[in-house]
């Protein structure tokens, strides 16, 4: 295997659809793209079948920008709205059965570490609240207990969105859904607290109101997972269909929810904090050196 997978064999480039030519010439590979560059390069995902105004899709786009080495990343997902978009990204995607996504990711990560000793290969689980907090809960928890070195990103839309609106463990208590007409009976699960208890190295909660913050948080989580241990991001990605949010109001909703109960928080374990501070110092030193050398 080599990174030449993103170059066409001699003579074939002329026969490729334009989207692939653009990915070769101006894609996100082999360079760290910034959020401010969105719209000026060929993104890993453009067309997708998600609902109009879907905040989850915006978040997924930003995740792709934030990945520190997109050409060396494997994404693992499962049933849910998110996989409809993620499976169409120009990043290898592995579909874990509902419930075993983090177990599948464990196998992939360990296999990649054996096969590619000299190259960091990042594994990122990106799935919904149903896939991670409910049905995939045991695999998520055990991957954290085992200190598996990959990132888990929960696309928390607080509902089973594409099966008609059943309440999930992450739905707010009392919320009346189409398939929960008497309202949800229990509190929203405290996945951040569970992650902390399980010894996750870096945990963050955020809403997609600040694109740069989303990309930076993803980058941070993936880099810490490489070196220290499991990381977890819980992202509010509203379902504007099941929550009846008018399409133009999706970001207003995200801002309101962020202000009310989804403020940005992050937690580092001691080891993760020490690693991150050191690596930040090193990055600053390198940036300064590069500036001085012109």
């Amino acid at each position: 295997m080599s990174l030449k997978t993103i170059e066409a064999a001699p003579g074939f480039k002329d026969y490729l659809p334009q989207e692939y030519k653009d990915l070769i010439d101006d894609g996100p590979f082999l360079k760290q793209r910034k959020v401010s560059e969105l719209g000026s390069f060929k993104e890993a995902i453009e067309e997708h079948p998600m609902c109009s105004g879907c905040a989850m899709t915006l978040f997924i786009r930003l995740v792709y920008v934030g990945l520190p080495s997109i050409e060396n990343t494997v994404i693992c997902g499962t049933a849910g709205c998110g996989r409809l978009a993620i499976s169409q990204g120009a990043v290898p995607f592995v579909y874990g059965n509902y419930g075993d996504t983090n177990a599948v990711a464990t196998g992939i990560k360990r296999g990649l570490d054996i096969r590619f000793k000299e190259q960091n290969k990042d594994v990122v689980v990106m799935a919904g609240d149903g896939g991670l907090a409910d049905i995939g809960f045991h695999a998520v928890m055990h991957s954290w207990f085992r200190k598996e070195k990959f990132t888990t990103i929960m696309l928390d839309n607080e509902v089973y969105g594409n099966t008609g609106g059943q309440d999930s463990g992450m739905t707010q208590k009392g919320m009346v859904m189409k398939m929960a007409p008497t309202g949800k009976k229990f509190e929203k699960m405290d996945m951040l607290g569970l992650a902390k208890t399980a010894g996750v190295a870096y945990t963050a909660r955020l809403a997609p109101t600040n694109p740069t913050r989303v990309a930076n948080t993803v980058r941070k989580a993936v880099l810490i997972a490489r070196e220290v241990g499991p990381t977890f991001i819980q992202a509010y990605t509203s379902c504007n269909i099941e929550y009846a949010i008018p399409t133009p109001k999706v970001m207003d909703d995200a801002r309101a929810v962020e202000k009310d109960r989804y403020q940005f928080v992050e937690y580092f374990s001691d080891e993760a904090k020490a690693y991150w501070d050191d690596s930040e110092k090193e990055r600053k030193r390198l940036r300064k050196a590069a500036k001085q050398s012109g």
């Binding site: 997978t5 064999a9 074939f12 026969y15």
Partner: peptide, 22 residues
């Protein structure tokens, strides 16, 4: 219909094979 194993220049063998494909 060339598939990914001949379409992408991921190793020397693939690059060589492309000529014979054409």
């Amino acid at each position: 219909f060339p598939g990914p194993l001949v379409l992408w220049g991921w190793n020397d063998h693939t690059n060589e094979k492309a000529k014979y494909f054409f």
